[in-house]
Design a protein around this nucleic acid. Structure first.
Lengths: 207, 207
DNA sequence: GCGTGTGAACATCTTCACAGCA
DNA sequence: TGCTGTGAAGATGTTCACACGC
């Protein structure tokens, strides 16, 4: 089935949702207001929201509660997704203890590390498991999303284990381009890429 | 001056560079190979590289060394950029100790935290400073990029200090949409946004 | 009157397809 | 022959502008 929500719209929905979660229940919000808060053109906000259905009232705006509900529904946040975080260093720990996960539809169902010193110890309330058990655990626990927070040189191996265990979505924080088979979706989050994009614009504007 | 490199191309250049840095000096690479490794169509690779100039050889490919040099030049990596990292929790620590920074054109010129327990202590070889000194230090040290790794509720205040101190580029890891004046560029990196995008696609494909 | 919802115009990005040159 | 560089076609995304309904 083809998605009726355009690719470009998808990453803006979590942004709108974040803003709506800060708004009191029972209030209204206009595309103009939401646009200013999100840093997005008001027409774009309306187009984005129109893909979810017609939930606005002409002359008035959108009901905050209803809009939150509809965005959550479109994003599949009605169901709980299980995460496996691989790598219990500073980054993995930051991710595992990230408050925005629990209660927002994501549960950390496993935290793995290669360092025997770390294995068995609790990190953010979760017991660290040896990375050798990743594949089996991911399959048994029906992990939905694998989060890779290991050094670049170990990342491909971890990705291979995840894929072999049937995981079809990977969030990769390691600075490498992972090779995965068709049907597996990878999102890359890379500090140096972000800095380089910022640097590019600074560089350009200083010429 | 208008940028001759399209917006969409910019974030792919760091990706190409990362791949090229793994290749031996003195070798050649074709757009096809680079495309497979980057997960990008070969024609797109060639278009992207053509914005930097004509550095390929027909029938052969690109010289790895030269391409690395040209991408670095286009990204402004010829100059060193100074970072201030705000927030010395797990995330801030992970960022401050990230190996990919030093020697890649980025220097952590300040690490700040609000917690008096953390101030003064060295984190990843850097002494943590009180966040109250952020503004003055950022201005004096001519910080180029501010990295926000504080909780959501403190992020806007930190952003305001950075902007007041003349910082024009911000990398925001806090899950909020920052309000900044025109001319200040913000890039958002948000775990829940990434997870929600992955969740959306899982959700869609399971229908 | 006011803000949504949306066709249509415009802008940007991607992919194709092939000429041109080593 | 093989791969780059690039016009042109096609796809996607954004913005405008206004009809519509509260």
């Amino acid at each position: 089935m083809k998605s009726p929500v355009p690719r470009a719209t998808v990453p803006r929905l979590p942004l709108y949702l974040q803003i709506l979660e800060e708004r009191p229940d029972g209030t209204m919000i206009s595309s103009e207001e939401l646009g200013v808060l999100a840093g997005v053109n008001a027409a774009k906000v309306r187009k984005d929201l129109s893909y979810l259905g017609s939930y606005g009232t002409r002359g008035v705006g959108y009901q905050v509660d209803q809009l939150r509900f509809e965005i959550r529904r479109a994003l599949g946040l009605t169901r709980e997704w299980l995460l496996a975080i691989v790598g219990a260093g500073n980054l993995g720990t930051a991710l595992a203890t990230y408050a925005g996960l629990h209660g927002r539809g994501y549960r950390v169902a496993g935290l793995f590390d290669a360092d025997p010193e770390k294995v068995g110890g609790p990190v953010g309330g979760i017991t660290v498991e040896p990375v050798g058990r990743l594949g089996g655990a991911a399959r048994r626990r029906r992990i939905d999303i694998g989060v890779i927070a290991v050094p670049a040189e170990s990342a491909q191996g971890v990705a291979d284990s995840l894929v072999a265990a049937g995981v079809r979505s990977i969030l990769n924080f390691a600075p490498v381009a992972l090779q995965v088979p068709e049907g597996v979706e990878v999102r890359r989050v890379d500090l140096s890429t972000e800095l380089q994009v910022l640097g590019f614009h600074l560089h350009r504007s200083s010429e």
